[in-house]
Measured scan of single mutants.
Amino acid sequence: MEQGTVKWFNAEKGFGFIERENGDDVFVHFSAIQGDGFKSLDEGQAVTFDVEEGQRGPQAANVQKA
């Protein structure tokens, strides 16, 4: 798993971006967030995640709040 920081996340649209430790950004969809209840992330929040190849390039999977 990688570690990163939430760059931004739009809860209304259900997606955002995580900044990886290497400085690259990776797309995150709310469906990739682990846990119960409303799935959202806060700007600046530390997270761990896997990276999978999506239809439009790399995207975060198995996102967990650190």
Rank of each mutant, 00 (worst) to 15 (best):
M1N: 11
M1A: 12
E2A: 11
E2Q: 15
E2S: 09
E2P: 05
Q3V: 13
Q3W: 12
Q3C: 08
G4E: 01
G4P: 01
G4R: 00
T5Y: 11
T5C: 08
V6K: 01
V6F: 03
V6N: 01
V6C: 07
V6Y: 00
V6W: 03
V6D: 01
K7N: 03
K7V: 05
K7E: 02
K7Y: 03
W8N: 03
W8S: 04
W8T: 03
W8G: 02
W8L: 03
W8A: 03
F9N: 00
F9Q: 01
F9M: 03
F9P: 00
F9I: 04
F9H: 02
N10I: 06
N10Y: 07
N10V: 05
N10A: 08
A11R: 15
A11G: 08
E12V: 14
E12Q: 12
K13I: 09
K13D: 04
K13N: 06
K13M: 12
G14L: 03
G14I: 02
G14C: 03
G14R: 04
G14V: 02
F15G: 02
F15H: 07
F15N: 02
F15A: 03
F15W: 14
F15M: 06
F15D: 01
G16D: 00
G16H: 00
G16N: 00
G16V: 01
G16I: 01
G16L: 01
F17P: 00
F17K: 05
F17S: 03
F17V: 08
I18T: 01
I18G: 00
E19D: 07
E19Y: 14
E19M: 15
E19K: 15
R20K: 08
R20D: 05
R20I: 07
R20M: 08
E21P: 15
E21D: 11
N22D: 11
N22V: 10
D24C: 08
D24R: 14
D24G: 12
D24Y: 10
D24W: 10
D24I: 12
D25N: 11
D25W: 12
D25E: 12
D25R: 10
D25S: 11
V26H: 01
V26C: 06
V26F: 05
F27M: 03
F27G: 01
F27E: 02
F27P: 03
V28H: 00
V28P: 00
H29N: 03
H29L: 06
H29M: 05
H29C: 05
H29F: 09
F30Y: 15
F30R: 09
F30W: 14
F30G: 04
F30E: 04
F30Q: 06
S31W: 06
S31N: 08
S31Q: 07
S31H: 07
A32Y: 04
A32Q: 08
A32V: 07
I33R: 00
I33T: 02
I33N: 02
I33A: 02
I33C: 04
I33P: 01
Q34N: 11
Q34F: 10
Q34S: 11
Q34R: 13
Q34G: 09
G35F: 08
G35S: 10
D36W: 10
D36C: 08
D36N: 10
D36L: 10
D36G: 10
D36R: 10
D36E: 13
G37P: 06
G37W: 06
G37I: 06
G37L: 06
G37K: 07
F38H: 09
F38C: 07
F38G: 07
F38M: 07
F38S: 07
K39Y: 06
K39Q: 09
S40Q: 09
S40C: 07
S40L: 09
S40H: 10
L41K: 02
D42H: 14
D42C: 07
D42K: 13
D42P: 09
D42M: 14
D42L: 12
D42Y: 15
D42A: 10
E43W: 14
E43T: 15
E43P: 15
G44Y: 05
Q45E: 12
Q45P: 02
Q45V: 10
A46S: 13
A46Q: 13
A46F: 13
A46R: 15
A46G: 08
A46P: 12
V47P: 00
V47M: 02
V47Y: 03
V47Q: 00
V47T: 02
V47H: 00
V47E: 00
V47F: 01
T48K: 10
T48P: 00
T48F: 12
T48A: 07
T48E: 07
F49H: 01
F49M: 05
F49N: 00
F49T: 01
D50Q: 15
D50M: 15
E52W: 11
E52M: 12
E52P: 03
E52I: 15
E53H: 14
E53A: 11
E53G: 08
G54C: 05
G54M: 07
G54A: 08
Q55N: 12
Q55K: 14
Q55S: 14
Q55W: 14
Q55R: 14
R56V: 06
R56K: 09
R56W: 14
G57C: 04
G57Q: 04
G57S: 06
G57W: 05
P58D: 06
P58G: 05
P58I: 11
Q59C: 07
Q59E: 09
Q59D: 02
A60G: 04
A60W: 01
A60K: 00
A60S: 03
A61T: 14
A61V: 15
A61W: 08
N62Q: 05
N62M: 06
N62H: 10
N62P: 01
N62G: 05
N62S: 06
V63Q: 01
V63G: 01
Q64Y: 11
Q64H: 14
Q64T: 09
K65W: 08
K65R: 12
A66D: 11
A66I: 13
